[in-house]
Design a protein around this nucleic acid. Sequence first.
RNA 1: GGGGGUGUAGCUCAGUUGGUUAGAGCGCUGCCCUGUCACGGCAGAGGUCGCGAGUUCGAGUCUCGUCACUCUCGCCA
Length: 602
Amino acid sequence: MNINIRRVKMHQYRSHTCSQLRSSDVDSTIRLSGWVHRKRDHGGLLFIDLRDHYGLTQIVIDCDSPNFQRAEEVRAESVISIDGTVVARTDDTVNKNLPTGEIEIHVSSIEVLNHAEELPLPVFGEQDYPEDTRLKYRFLDLRRERIHKNMVLRSDVITSIRRRMTDQGFKEYQTPILTASSPEGARDFLVPSRMHPGKFYALPQAPQQFKQLLMVAGFDRYFQIAPCFRDEDARADRSPGEFYQLDMEMSFATQEDVFAAIEPVMEGIFREFSDKKVTAAPFPRITFKESMLKYGNDKPDLRNPIIIQDVTEAFRGSGFGIFAGMIEKGAVVRAVVAEGTGVRPRSFFDKMNDWARSEGFAGLGYINIKEGEAKGPIAKNIGEEKLAQLTQQLELGDNDGVFFACGKENEAAKLAGLARTKVGHDLELIKDDEFKFCWIVDFPMYEYDEEAKKLDFSHNPFSMPQGGMEALNTMDPEDILGYQYDIVCNGIELSSGAIRNHQPELMYKAFELAGYSKEVVEDKFSGMLNAFKFGAPPHGGIAPGIDRIVMLLANEPNIREVILFPMNQKAEDLMMNAPAAAENTQLRELHIRTMIPEVKEE
RNA sequence: GGGGGUGUAGCUCAGUUGGUUAGAGCGCUGCCCUGUCACGGCAGAGGUCGCGAGUUCGAGUCUCGUCACUCUCGCCA
């Protein structure tokens, strides 16, 4: 058989990939391997689109060919290897949608390397499929064009990040996976110790302590594409269980040094992997306080042009009794202007109020101005003078609508923030052609925990308080700011970071204010605290979430679309069947007995 | 743990005020087809309508419960 003679000269599986061949290759004898993407059977003539990671090539088999029957029988997604000749397509059969569309392969032999059974999930086409089916047959799902591309993008992004970091003198180090609980506030994943009955390792929620120890160890500039493990419930932008961070830390660094190191990486990768506009470094710095006022949260979507205003004074002592009364008890009023909505029917405003109630708030007030005339219960009762004051402050036009959130400062800010987002979204004010970055800075070190009735850290307890020991000794703890910052893009928090507290005395004091004794601190964080007693450099860092960055770049609304093998919302791996019960012998070795809560029968 | 949405063929979905034998497209099986690239044509198989109760002469449709998936709140500094 002449085929076998050719095989001696050629690679066993392929001479080219499925995206390589062009009209310049016409008349070449080639070998391709790949998946049967699509078959078009004309009876006397059969076309197969052969697919691999790189692309598609059209294969043609004539009914005269001894391979015809085998080709006709092979099912989509089977893996085949073909030998053949590259032939130019006639002008009227060229496919301009394919890079290889000017040629096709006339087959001399076909070998089926692996038969595919009937598919639970078609690879061809763009149709949506149930999440659980996709996860169970992830290997099929991942063959599909869009998600396959996402994973390639993810790989390219990570490569680019590594290059950009190392170009700046950062070095990548690996930190332990089996370790002790770290200071993040999430639930730990625990791993039982065989050698130490009753004791457990924790998987790192982040390499936080290790990267700080690396600074103490004098490595100066560290980074890692670091896996992080947190046993918390999932969200659309939060994978259950595990995720990846671009973890970085630098010593002898100020907050501005950290910003200057990370800004070009962010700007660079977003420009490299997207056609959208990208904020040019330096990114805007917005204080936490200003962000809460203007945007109603600490992760503002700056694409939304609406800016919230405080209008407490316009309602104080006004004829609108509900708000005036609440203001006397310390409430504030925040306004969200919805330009041009004044002419909308009353139902528009009622629906917004219903929405606010469904979000758990008391309600959302409004004024709508129709051809210069202010309408609605607030406009009727507030009084002419106050109405004029509002109109002037908010620069209201003749047909504008405006919503009011009244409540305790936190509540009002939160509702106004949600309303800002909703109005921006509903009125289509948020243009999806841009990545708008900003830093949120000056987070408070502490906040009062209403449930526990005690002061607690509002962010990372290891952050350096602004003003140092003097601030801790003299200021109202709730007024103390930290060198803590978030980087935000289009309303998504990509990361928190901080300049760390590297002085033991400051740390004891900072923890003392939150109600932790010296003994507790020493017990919980002995490794790091010890290190700070033997010469620790000032240091700080940040850890942007890789999955969220790729999500933004791939324009995917769900984080599972950029993760190869994600778990479902209940933290189950449907493909590998994890978690699973352990064998008794395993449990015995680990000195563990399970206590499974009783499940209702049937 | 709370709230919302969804659940009908392998997949995507339709199914009227409760009324005979639950439909379509893709996929699958068989036959036909030599220029398609979402090929086309003919025929066929495939359904405990998520599950369990209830109301009713009669339930895919109404009620209650339950399960699964998903979004969301809590949680995640």
